[in-house]
Amino acid sequence: MKKILIIGATSAIAEATARRYAKKGSKLYLIARNGERLATLATDLKIRGASSVDTALLDVNERGSQGPVLEQATKTLGLIDVALIAHGTLGDQKGCEQDAEKALLEFETNAVSTLALLTRLATIFEKQHAGTIAVISSVAGDRGRPSNYVYGTAKAAITTFCEGLQARLFKSGVHVLIIKPGLVATPMTEGLSLPAMLVAEPDLVARDIVRAIEKRTDTLYTPWFWKYIMAIIIHIPTALFKKANL
C-alpha cells in the first residue's frame, strides 16, 4: 500500500493521478486551497478504493503555513512514497506584460511557492532515504514564448531547481521526477483555442505519471510526442523563432 502526498490536489492532473492511486488502494494525503472541492474529492477517492484519505487546507503562497501542513502530513502518512506537487495557474500573459506586480504574483504562485515546498520536501525525503518527489513543470519551461513566457519562466525555474535536486537526492536514494505535460484539457486551459489533435486528457497524463514514478524516470514528457516537438522547438534559431508567432 503506497502512501501518496499530493499538493494542489484538486487540479485536474492531480485528481486523475489520485484516482489511479486510489484504485490501487493507496493511502492518500491531499492538500489544496478549496475546502469544499477537497472534501468532495476525498469522498470520491475513498469510494474508488483509497485505503484512507486525509486532507489539509493550504494556500501555497502563505509560505509560513507550508511547514506545519507538511509536518502534519508526515505525521499522518509516516514514510511518504510519493509526493506530487501539482498546483499552478496559467495566468494572464497579456495582463502580466502591463503589470509587474501581476507578473511577480504569477511567479510567486507557480515558482516561488513550489521552490519552497521542494526545499521542505527534500529535507523530509533525504531523511527517509527513499521515495519519489514528482513535480509538474511544463513544456512551456523549455523555451520562452511570447504567448506565455511568464508561466514558462516559472516552470523553467522549477525544472532547473529539480535538476539540481535530482543530483543532490540521488545520493540518498530519493527519486525526483520532472513532469512536462504538453497541452492538457483541464480547467486551467479551459477557454483557450487549442489544436484538438495535440490536446490530451488528464487521465492519459496521469497514467504516464504513475508509470514514470514506477520506472524512476528523470524527466517525463507527456504525452510522449512532446519530447520530439520540444526537441525541434528549442533548436529553432532565435532569429527565426522571434518571427514565428508561438
Partner: peptide, 16 residues
C-alpha cells in the same frame, strides 16, 4: 465534464 465525483455509496444496498 468536471462535475464527475462520486459523492456517496452504500455497499450494502448499492445506492450511489
Amino acid at each position: 465534464r468536471y462535475l464527475n465525483h462520486i459523492l456517496d455509496f452504500d455497499s450494502d444496498t448499492g445506492m450511489v
